[in-house]
Amino acid sequence: MTLIIDGLTAIFLALGVFLAFTGALGTLRFPDLYTRLHASSITDTLASFMILFGLMLQAGLTLISVKLLLIFLFLWYTSPASSHALIRAAYLNRLPARLIRRPNKETPPSKP
């Protein structure tokens, strides 16, 4: 039983570290701030979930798990707020964004 839980924890931790590395790599590869923010939100959302969930499996049903859950909730509540504040400040300060036009001029049909 503990072997299965240890294996699951290892898998979740490995996935989490891989996703965190993906996000950090994205901030290096993407061309401007606006696209880099998308990369950093990967590390904020799913990577933190994977790592904290892997730790929760180790802790079981204790107060430690509750604390891990609280960290997870705080991260998921604060990360959109801080990235929105960041992109809003950058936009209002006229940081140039690199955009790509749609191939055809007409806007896509939006379903009601």
Binding site: H38, S83, H84, Y91
Partner: peptide
């Protein structure tokens, strides 16, 4: 709504525009 958009990677809400519209930056079309 705006928080959900920002939480999903690939779309970030930038600011609220008049006529109850939301300016959104997306990674892909």
């Amino acid at each position: 709504y705006a928080n959900s958009i920002t939480l999903t990677p690939g779309t970030i809400s930038v600011r609220i525009m008049p006529d109850s519209k939301l300016l959104v930056h997306a990674l892909t079309h």
